[in-house]
Write a protein that binds this DNA or RNA. Structure first.
Lengths: 107, 107
DNA sequence: TATTTGTTCTATTATCTAGAATATATCTGG
DNA sequence: CCAGATATATTCTAGATAATAGAACAAATA
């Protein structure tokens, strides 16, 4: 299992934290809140799709709800490989930053 | 200032931790030690060069030493922008992982 | 049919990765 | 002392992969 990219990390965490509400639109909003700036639609769905292809996420289409129009949602969920990838990231981060002061002092 | 990629993060940290010994070869070795696997030459020098172009690192050629042959080394150092980028990464990581248990439990 | 919600598609740009090519220094034999 | 031989290190280049933007499309209700 390869190391995930930054945006993949952020998206995996968004899916984890949104739990049963994890579909495209709120995932994007969550990512935007995390980053503090706007993110394009493609910048979410392209890596989302790749994470599914790689087996770190699973996805399924939900039945339409009676809220107010709109296409049906595609929900996402972490697979056990996805969880493993996040754990691997925790480990790597710990190794990388172990000896770095927090916060980082002046040059 | 954009958010740095994973390999850029690892290289910035390697330069930080190597201090005055930060040139290509030991940077590569340090990265390999962090990751626990081999990394190609290009996988180091290409992002290193980009980090210089972006102003996160500075670099200068050293005089040849009298150790045993070899081309002169090119040393790298974090600029204040590079330090800022690392601080921004600490912040982002804190925001991203704040509510995630460590270690991450089962699915 | 208009409106709303949401996803898919596609093209461009940027980044990653591998390793061959190149550069430049000291060492060694005659 | 000079011509390879050897060692150390970086630069270059090309193909693969990933990021990003937003237009196009789909499907539901009003």
């Amino acid at each position: 299992m390869d190391i995930v990219t930054r945006i993949e990390e952020i998206i995996l965490l968004a899916v984890l934290q949104l739990g049963s509400r994890a579909y495209g639109v709120p995932i994007r909003e969550h990512v935007q809140a995390m980053l503090g700036h706007r993110v394009s639609i493609g910048a979410i769905y392209v890596p989302l799709d790749r994470l599914v292809r790689k087996g770190l996420l699973t996805s399924f289409e939900a039945e339409p709800t009676a809220e107010r129009g709109g296409r049906r949602k595609r929900y996402y969920k972490l697979s056990s490989e996805g969880l493993d990838a996040l754990r691997a990231l925790q480990d790597l981060h710990e190794r990388l930053w172990r000896d770095v002061p927090q916060p980082l002092g002046a040059g």
